[in-house]
Amino acid sequence: MVTFTTLPPWKTQEPEFECVDIYKQPSLQHPRLINHHIQMRPSDEVLAMLSMDSSKNLSNDKAVAEFDMPEEGCPEGQVPIHKPRNSNYSKKRFHLNGYGTIGQHAALIHKTEGNSWRGASAWISVYQPKVTKDQLSMALIWINSEYDGIRNTIQLGWGVIPQLYGDYRTRLTTYWSPDNDDEGCYNMLCSGFVQIDSTLFLGTPFTNISEVGGKQYNAFFSVNQDPKTGNWILTSGRIYIGYWPGELLPFMDDGAEEVRYGGFTNAESENLQPFDIVSPPMGNGNKPQEEEVDLKYNCYMHHVQYVTQDYKNVEIDSNKVAEDADAGKCYDVIYLDNFGSMRQTFIFGGPGGFCDV
Rank of each mutant, 00 (worst) to 15 (best):
A322P: 03
G242C: 09
S90Y: 15
D317C: 03
T112Y: 15
I34S: 15
P42K: 13
I143C: 13
F67P: 02
S55M: 09
R151H: 04
S54C: 07
V126D: 14
T229F: 06
Y331W: 05
E258G: 03
F221E: 05
S121Y: 05
A63K: 12
K312I: 04
Y168F: 15
F206Y: 15
Y127P: 01
C190I: 08
Q104C: 07
L249W: 03
P15N: 09
T174G: 13
T12R: 14
A48W: 04
S43W: 04
M282F: 00
R118H: 12
T6E: 14
F4L: 12
D167G: 08
A219W: 01
R32Q: 13
Y127I: 02
D254K: 15
E257W: 04
P351I: 00
I161G: 05
N180W: 09
S43H: 01
N338L: 02
F251D: 01
K312S: 10
L200R: 05
I161F: 10
V131I: 09
R85D: 01
H303Q: 13
K320H: 14
W232S: 03
T5N: 13
P75H: 09
T229H: 14
R238K: 13
I154C: 07
Y297S: 01
V223Q: 09
L189C: 05
T265Y: 09
I102M: 12
K62I: 00
T199L: 11
P75W: 15
R85V: 00
T12D: 10
L50S: 11
S116L: 12
I141R: 14
I81G: 05
G283N: 01
T132S: 15
P129W: 12
R151N: 09
K92M: 10
K24Y: 02
G353T: 10
K92I: 02
N208T: 09
V278M: 10
T235A: 14
S59P: 08
L189D: 12
A139I: 02
I38N: 11
Y240L: 07
F346K: 08
W158S: 03
D44P: 02
G213H: 14
